[in-house]
Amino acid sequence: MFNIIQRIQSLSNFYLTVSILLCIVTTVVSIISMFLDETSSIPAQLSNVVISTNLKYSRSFGSVGGRPKENSKILFDLDMDLAPLFNWNTKQLFVQLVAEYPTSVADDGAKVTYWDSIITEKKYARVHVNKQRGKYSVWDVSDSFQGRNATVKLKWNLQPYVGFLFFGQTKGEIEVAYPAT
């Protein structure tokens, strides 16, 4: 009546059902816990943000055909504690320092990343850095940043072990002007 193939089949069917159910439960619980932990209003203290610019001529710095391209760098102080984002379904946090400035097309026409970091454990969730240099030399689509004012903020992305990815930003953004050259 029951041969080995049927046994294997029903066992794997059961295994599949249980794992799908587990995935659904995990996903739902982690969505609920994201709401309960008030993750949308984590404060971050950004200060002493200074943006400097210089001219670059290489393609890897955005220059096209050897034309000078203005690149910008950042210096900043940051104090924040992202511990509320670490729950049992948090695999890693990706945090990035983003400058957003208006262009002729839209108010949030450009968003650029100056610094980012990966946090994989709760004990490293407190980020406290002074005079931190950005990771990237940033250029715009246009040749210059002159006269632009940017809103600098910190965004995070929560990578779960299973389920939906969560995105958000910390409270406490700061206005910074690009230097006139």
Partner: peptide, 29 residues
């Protein structure tokens, strides 16, 4: 697409999908 999103893209002529994160985004006409 928002900055920080993870996108899957395919470059013309290279039919391999690549999964990477958006570092900058610019809206232009």
């Amino acid at each position: 697409v928002d900055i920080g999103d993870v996108v899957v893209y395919e470059v013309k002529g290279k039919p391999i999908p690549i999964v990477h994160r958006v570092l900058r985004e610019h809206k232009v006409t």
